[in-house]
Structure formats: structure tokens, C-alpha cells
Simulated assay, not measured.
Amino acid sequence: MMNTQRWMVALLPLLLAACSQKSGEIEGVKSFENKGGDHQEGRVSYTQTPPAGGAHNPSWQNCGVYDQPLYNEYAVHSLEHGAVWISYQPTLASEQVTQLKQLAEGRTHTLVSPHEGQDSPVVVTAWNKQLAVKDASDPRIKTFLVKYEQGGEAPEIGASCSGAYNGTV
């Protein structure tokens, strides 16, 4: 009986932590309330860095892997189409950048690029959702991709993520 009680006492904090998190939520994901459909030419000021929605260019960024920073306005339009944007600090170690690029392989609605000015080494962004992590090997990145690529709150899920803008900053 004594061993069973010890086991239950050791397990209780884990069970309480699991129950306190809402089902299906990824630890650390921040939520925002941006509306879709607001097309604007030129530069747009955003509240989040990188942005997680809002006004954006009428053209979307072609999904894929980029070695140069992207214009926020085009990338946000891709988010509206259900894309996930994996951005990283330009100083991130090359091995970690390679890991992020590998995560995007075979995905039709994913962007990978460096992003100037973000606070965390890696930030994963979907429309109205964002996760900041310290390391490219964090398993939450893949979980976020699975959950939000062509899912979540994106206003135009299923819209194209190719055949538009391919430039970089």
C-alpha cells in the first residue's frame, strides 16, 4: 500500500497539469484577434513581430524556404491563406536553420525565412496564433505546423500559396 501511495503522490502534479491545459492547446501559443480581407499597398505597421495577421498586400508570398527576410505584408497574406511562417533570427546557428528548413519539406503552405527584430530565436506564426521558442529542435514547432497549416483561424484556408510574389527584402 505504501508504494501505491507514493506513486499516486508522484503522479498527481502531472495529472493536474494535464487537466489544467485545454485539450489540443500547445503550451506557449499566444492568440490575437486580427480580421482578414484588408488589402493595402505599401508598408503596414503591425502589433506583433513577426505579424500574426491584419492588413496586408493584395499579393501573397509564395510559400517555400527563403534565405533572406520577407516583407511582412506579403507573408501576412499567405497566413490568411492558411500558411504557417517559421521565422528565425538572422544570427541563428546554421544547424538550427537546416532543422527548420527540413520541417518545411513537402509542405504546401509553409514559409521559412530569417526575420529582423524578433525577440526569440525562432517564432512560428499562423493567422492569430504565434509560438516563440529558443531552439529549432523544440517539438512544439512540428505540433504547431500540424495543427495550423491549413487549419486554425485563417480566413481563407485552401487558397493558393504559390503563383504570386517571390521576392525578398
Rank of each mutant, 00 (worst) to 15 (best):
E95L: 00
S31H: 11
P90F: 10
Y74F: 10
T47M: 00
G53Y: 02
G54N: 02
A104L: 03
P69L: 15
L12P: 03
G106A: 02
W7D: 15
L92P: 14
L111D: 09
Y71V: 13
A18F: 15
E105T: 11
G106P: 02
K101F: 02
A18L: 15
S94T: 12
T47G: 03
N57A: 12
K35Q: 15
E73N: 04
Q61G: 00
G82Y: 08
Q21V: 12
P50W: 05
I86M: 12
A10M: 03
V65A: 12
V44Y: 03
S113L: 01
A52E: 06
L100F: 09
K22L: 14
H109Y: 10
L111N: 10
P13M: 08
E41H: 04
S45G: 06
Q99A: 08
A17I: 13
S113G: 05
S87Q: 13
Q48G: 00
G64W: 08
G42M: 04
G53W: 07
V84G: 02
H56P: 02
N62K: 10
K30I: 04
Q96M: 08
L12Q: 14
R107V: 00
Q89N: 09
E25R: 13
T98D: 14
W60N: 05
T47S: 06
A17V: 13
V9P: 01
S94H: 09
V29R: 03
Q96W: 03
V44R: 08
W60F: 12
G53A: 05
P90Y: 04
G64R: 09
I26N: 00
R43Q: 10
N72P: 06
E80P: 03
T98W: 13
S31N: 10
L70T: 14
Q89L: 04
Y74P: 00
F32A: 04
E27L: 09
V76P: 00
Y66W: 06
T98G: 04
L111F: 12
L111T: 11
Y88I: 02
W7L: 15
S78Y: 03
H77A: 09
S59V: 11
V65C: 04
Y46G: 02
Q21F: 12
P58G: 06
Q99K: 11
Y74K: 07
L14I: 09
H81P: 09
D67R: 10
I26Q: 02
Q21R: 15
E80G: 05
G36M: 10
G82Q: 04
S45C: 01
P69W: 13
K35R: 12
V65S: 14
